[in-house]
Write a protein that binds this DNA or RNA. Sequence first.
DNA 1: ACCTTACTGCGAACAACTTGCGTCTGAGGA
DNA 2: TCCTCAGACGCAAGTTGTTCGCAGTAAGGT
Lengths: 153, 153
Amino acid sequence: MAGQHHRHPHDHDVDAELERILSALRDDGGRVTTGRRAVVRALLTADDHHVTAEDIAATVQRDHPDVHLSTVYRTLEALESRGIVGRVNLGTGSAVHHLMDHAHHHLVCDVCGSVTEVDDDAFTELRAEMERRYGFAMSPQHLAVAGRCADCR
Amino acid sequence: MAGQHHRHPHDHDVDAELERILSALRDDGGRVTTGRRAVVRALLTADDHHVTAEDIAATVQRDHPDVHLSTVYRTLEALESRGIVGRVNLGTGSAVHHLMDHAHHHLVCDVCGSVTEVDDDAFTELRAEMERRYGFAMSPQHLAVAGRCADCR
DNA sequence: ACCTTACTGCGAACAACTTGCGTCTGAGGA
DNA sequence: TCCTCAGACGCAAGTTGTTCGCAGTAAGGT
């Protein structure tokens, strides 16, 4: 065991989850490389769990300076195609990525750009309605609702 | 009065609405030019009322070949900042624009990319919930819901 | 240890806008 | 009607965020 540098109280949780995710990737025919490990770790330890590709690259490059931005993009794509991470694309600027640990949606503030998670259960009624009226199957993820957050009102 | 070319049964409605919109623009300090008139007309007559900037440019350029794409973008921006048109940005590809004639939202199919309008009233309950739980004021427009449409399921 | 072949770094390509610049023009006023 | 001048235009060049082609590297099954 032992030492990654800078251990924190919850590093065990992070490490366990990290390995769980990486095995899922490996079991699906993917390979686990230093870069990929670092990208997943960055996603796990990101403050608000919603980060851009460049955020991830910046974090990763603190420890591994030659992991290229395009590797981050390719890793995110590999994880997305396996349903491990999700992408939120609020029109302006870069897309934001997050682990799909639980079904949730996003309230995106038009003013400050902050992203708030909303549990999927708030949407069950709406989902049923869209299904009934339009035969449309709402994705359980990826939904971004624009508006104005409490702070910016 | 009289003749634009190629008159159709509902051209009067279109023309009336066109002038209404252009006056709103003019009353707000904007200027009405040939290009802007053509852009608004393209929005009014678009088949599904949800068009990309390039769609608009293509339509406009049939009659006015030297209206530049950048003029279309600038006109759309002018109209958006005045709340006359709205923009839907489904992650992939170009943004789609539409007149804000009534409050509605969008069901965007992940597979075929089709956009279905949903009246805002389906969202009143959800809006109240977001307000109550997070103090978040959902925009009455611009909401795009990802998923799979009836045809693609 | 060996052999596939997925993954990588790098730079160049790409799509969708956005902007700087010099010219032109709509529309309120003299 | 004519002036004038900020707002709008055409054009080309620039930005931004993301993807791709290539040749080299290294996972991981055998």
